[in-house]
């Protein structure tokens, strides 16, 4: 037996009902919007992360080179070209190619006289430049006594300056790259001898920067295996080169990971 119905039949078009339904639809829209905002936030985090690393790292794939006239002076190298091949390579290991570079630079910049200035001039070139000179003469011993133009690697600081990552308007005392070095660099740039090249050695060989970073870290009495956490108020701290190279390395790693991810997704869809 049904109970007595004391409830009125529902008026689906009363003003209260209409207002209520309107509110519910509005809540629906808001809920929908929150969802869109959420995935937008998540995806933009990803974009910012990848974007910032790519932005910092892209220039790391390029290395500044300076075309320099190198004289393979017999007296400095001190090894006759007539020697037997293995003995020649052996002897070559004991040659100090920094002196070769220094002598060649003396010819280029004759008015650089003081000891400290000449050291500064040398510092425009990377450690790798010595290796390049050694490799050139090792591949072709007949170069002894001759003068050749080699595309030598620029030092990290110079590399960063040329890429425009360092603020040169900061007073000299707060910079690592001093005015003198900048003027020499400018001379070389005006001569058209400074340019950027794709750094294939980044992929094939270890980078000099690991050693550079370690060296500068030891200078600051920090451990080599911890990344820099000090402030970046110095416009051109050595960390700038580290930042660029590390970002480039991370880019390579991430490209590999994304490729693997993509492969996994494709495989999963193929076998579904």
């Amino acid at each position: 037996m049904t109970k007595k119905n004391s409830i009125k039949p529902t008026d689906w078009h009363s003003p209260e009902m209409t207002a209520r339904i309107k509110t519910r639809y509005r809540k629906e829209k808001n809920f929908h919007r929150i969802g869109v905002i959420a995935i937008t936030i998540a995806v933009s985090f990803l974009i910012i992360l990848l974007g910032k690393i790519s932005y910092d790292g892209v220039s790391g794939f390029f290395q500044t080179r300076i075309d320099t006239k190198i004289t393979f002076s017999q007296s400095i190298i001190g090894v006759p070209s007539t020697m037997d091949k293995t003995a020649f390579q052996d002897q070559l290991k004991r040659v100090n190619f920094t002196r070769v570079l220094a002598a060649s630079l003396q010819n280029e910049f004759p008015d650089v006289n003081s000891r400290s200035d000449r050291r500064r001039l040398l510092r425009i070139y990377s450690i790798g430049a010595r290796e390049q000179i050694r490799l050139a003469i090792s591949a072709d011993p007949s170069l002894i006594g001759q003068t050749v133009i080699l595309p030598l690697y620029a030092a990290d600081d110079i590399d960063q300056v040329f890429k425009g990552n360092i603020d040169t308007s900061v007073p000299e005392a707060n910079r690592r790259v001093k005015d003198k070095e900048l003027s020499w660099l400018q001379t070389l740039i005006d001569d058209g001898r400074v340019y950027q090249k794709f750094h294939t050695r980044f992929f094939t060989a270890g980078d000099w920067n690991g050693r550079v970073y370690c060296r500068c870290a030891k200078q600051h009495n920090r451990s080599c295996d911890r990344p820099p956490r000090t402030n970046f108020l110095m416009a051109d701290s050595p960390e700038r080169a580290f930042l660029e190279k590390t970002s480039a390395a991370i880019m390579v790693l991430l490209m590999f990971l994304v490729a693997m991810n993509g492969l996994a997704i494709w495989l999963r869809q193929k076998f579904e």
Binding site: I7, T10, E16, M17, R20
Partner: peptide, 16 residues
């Protein structure tokens, strides 16, 4: 749908 304005009304609807 807001068919009950207070809980006793709701109880009644459920019971019915």
């Amino acid at each position: 749908h807001g068919l009950a304005s207070h809980s006793t009304e709701l109880d009644e609807i459920v019971a019915n």
